[in-house]
Simulated assay, not measured.
Amino acid sequence: MTYVFDTLDPAVFDAVGIGGFGLYVLNYTLLTFRKLQAEHILYFVLNGMAAAMLLIGLSTAFNLASALIQIFWICISCLAVILRLRSKKTNMQLVGLR
């Protein structure tokens, strides 16, 4: 598996990291202009994807502090999605919509 990553041009990792930056900016812009609400699952999905992409981008120019914050964002985003999906399932069961 590492062989595949070793054969890729480092510019690919940079491009993925820049894509992650773009997702962060897009997510924040959508939130700012009220096109997306912070309670919505999509907000956390985009945040988690952005963090994962930036973490991939860090693999060629590693920075521990940046990697730790991206890992935190991935974990908290996953937790938020799980909590919202559970809440949605519970609400549907309460109304009898299973």
Rank of each mutant, 00 (worst) to 15 (best):
L8G: 10
C75R: 10
G17D: 02
N27S: 12
A52D: 06
W73S: 00
V16K: 07
L97A: 15
I41R: 07
P10V: 09
L64S: 06
G22V: 01
I56H: 04
S87A: 12
D6V: 11
F13T: 12
L79Q: 15
V45Y: 02
G48V: 01
Q93S: 05
M49V: 10
Y28D: 14
D9T: 13
Y3N: 14
V16Y: 01
L46K: 07
L83D: 11
K88V: 00
A80S: 14
L68Y: 09
L79W: 13
L64H: 01
D6T: 13
R98I: 10
A50M: 04
L58Y: 01
F5N: 10
I56A: 06
A65F: 01
F72R: 05
M1E: 13
L55F: 05
D14V: 02
V45L: 04
L68G: 03
C78N: 00
L97M: 14
T90C: 05
V4L: 14
I41H: 02
L46A: 05
Y24I: 11
I56S: 08
R86V: 10
S87V: 11
Y43R: 15
L58M: 00
G20S: 04
Q93V: 05
L23P: 04
L42W: 01
L68H: 03
V81Q: 06
A51L: 01
A61K: 05
I41A: 00
N27A: 14
L97F: 13
G19F: 11
I56F: 02
L64C: 05
L79T: 13
H40D: 12
L68T: 07
L54C: 09
I76K: 04
F44G: 06
V12Y: 11
I76L: 15
L30V: 02
G22T: 09
G22E: 03
M49Y: 08
D9K: 08
A67W: 02
A67I: 05
V12M: 12
Y43K: 14
N47S: 05
M1N: 05
A61D: 09
I82M: 12
G17C: 09
F33H: 15
Q70E: 13
D9W: 08
S77R: 05
L8H: 11
N27C: 12
M92V: 11
L94N: 12
L97E: 14
L94E: 15
G20P: 06
I82V: 14
A38F: 11
L54G: 01
Q70L: 12
T7C: 09
L83P: 09
G57A: 05
A15E: 11
R34W: 14
I56M: 03
W73Y: 08
Y3I: 14
L58N: 00
D14G: 06
A52Y: 01
Q93F: 07
V25A: 11
F72Q: 00
Q70T: 04
F21P: 03
V16T: 10
E39W: 12
Q70S: 04
A61Q: 03
I74N: 05
A52I: 08
N63I: 02
S66A: 05
A61F: 06
T90I: 08
Q37I: 02
L68R: 10
I56V: 10
V25T: 13
A80V: 13
A52C: 07
F33P: 14
V45H: 04
L31H: 08
L55E: 01
L42R: 11
G20W: 01
V81T: 08
L55G: 06
